[in-house]
């Protein structure tokens, strides 16, 4: 029979450093950036960094919900595109439209998440394929809606969230609104994932859906909610990104994979059961710090993609090694 003779002491030793390694990696990268560019230590330096990283951080925290529930959400990048393109068309340069446009975008996001969840739960399409199909569909919708060449601009009111800095503050001098949004949403997503019954059930269905079902967990409802959280956080990320990105039909391209990479850097277990919202946010900051560093090194843009791909593989490989050593 299975015996408990396996090294107890070793196990305890290994459990001692409970701090997620992503925080050390992030700290090391920040030190490296500061060494190369001392201006980064100034408030304008790191506040701008956080502002630019905020959309991906929120996206990664939302993506984590789907990953912990045992799936992937590849549609979030196309949701971002749809939000940016759709908002510019709907608002039609009218500053008063901002609030109802944002409300509409969150409604669309909720609908996308709901459809993703329903397709996965009831049509039994694997989430990778279901959300890939949704990604292609939404990119097409954004293209058609804009007639292929997005016209117009986002109003300054709309761009407020992603672009505006609250000036003249003591100590930190400026505070980007995007950072406030990140802190508020980050805390809300942390609370929902790690402090509520829903969060525990998302962990359970990603860990063992059959056991969760036999324990009375409403597996489909929980899974659909996870997809909706992911899509809604993509809407929030799209609104922030609209603050500093131009209106185009490829503004969200690639963000879905960056979000997954960030969540995995944060130690999320692919195929479900384990993950942390703060660590996923740290993973997003880490990824952005790596990109910043590559910029300073003067490496061309395509290198970013090469590096990102290697990071994704390396992060999963490291996670698998860790899992092997801790047994399962």
């Amino acid at each position: 029979m299975t015996e408990q003779t396996l090294p107890h002491a070793d196990r305890r030793k290994r459990q001692l450093p409970q701090i997620n390694p992503v925080y050390f990696v992030l700290a090391a990268l920040i030190v490296a950036i500061v060494v190369m560019n001392p201006a980064f230590a100034e408030p304008t330096g790191y506040m701008n960094f956080l502002k630019r990283a905020a959309p991906l951080a929120i996206l990664a925290a939302g993506q984590l919900y789907v990953i912990v529930s045992g799936g992937f959400d590849l549609s979030v990048g196309s949701v971002i595109t749809l939000v940016v393109v759709g908002s510019s068309i709907l608002s039609n340069n009218d500053p008063n439209s901002t609030w109802w446009v944002i409300a509409t975008m969150f409604a669309i996001g909720a609908g996308v998440g709901l459809i993703n969840g329903l397709v996965v739960c009831y049509l039994k399409v694997p989430s990778l394929i279901a959300t890939l199909g949704m990604m292609i569909t939404l990119n097409g919708v954004a293209f058609m809606w804009s007639g292929g060449s997005p016209r117009g601009y986002l109003t300054d009111q709309f761009r407020f969230f992603g672009r505006f800095n609250i000036p003249d503050l003591p100590l930190i001098r400026i505070l980007p609104v995007a950072l406030i949004v990140l802190i508020v949403l980050g805390f809300a997503l942390y609370w929902l994932m790690h402090r509520t019954n829903l969060g525990r059930m998302i962990h359970a269905i990603g860990d063992n859906p059959r056991a969760a079902n036999l324990a009375g967990v409403p597996v489909n409802r929980v899974r659909i909610l996870a997809f909706m959280v992911s899509s809604l956080s993509a809407v929030a990320a799209g609104i922030l990104l609209g603050g500093f990105a131009g209106v185009s039909t490829d503004v969200g391209t690639g963000y879905e994979l960056q979000a997954i990479t960030a969540a995995v850097l944060g130690g999320a277990q692919l195929l479900g059961g384990r993950g942390s919202v703060p660590a996923a946010i740290a993973g997003a900051l880490t990824l952005n710090a790596i990109f910043t560093l590559l910029n300073f090194l003067g490496l061309p843009q395509p290198i970013r993609q090469v590096v990102q791909g290697l990071i994704l593989i390396a992060a999963v490989a490291v996670a698998m090694q860790r899992r092997k050593h801790t047994g399962r």
Binding site: N197, M201, D207, A212, A215, L225
Partner: peptide
């Protein structure tokens, strides 16, 4: 292992799984 346990979760989480499944979704765990 296949039908009862959520292996990556704590002993407590396993014990409380069903109680939580019948509590409000956004209620405290």
């Amino acid at each position: 292992k296949a039908e009862a346990l959520v292996l990556m979760q704590s002993v407590r989480d396993n014990g409380l799984l069903t109680a939580r499944a019948f509590a409000p979704l956004v209620g405290t765990q």
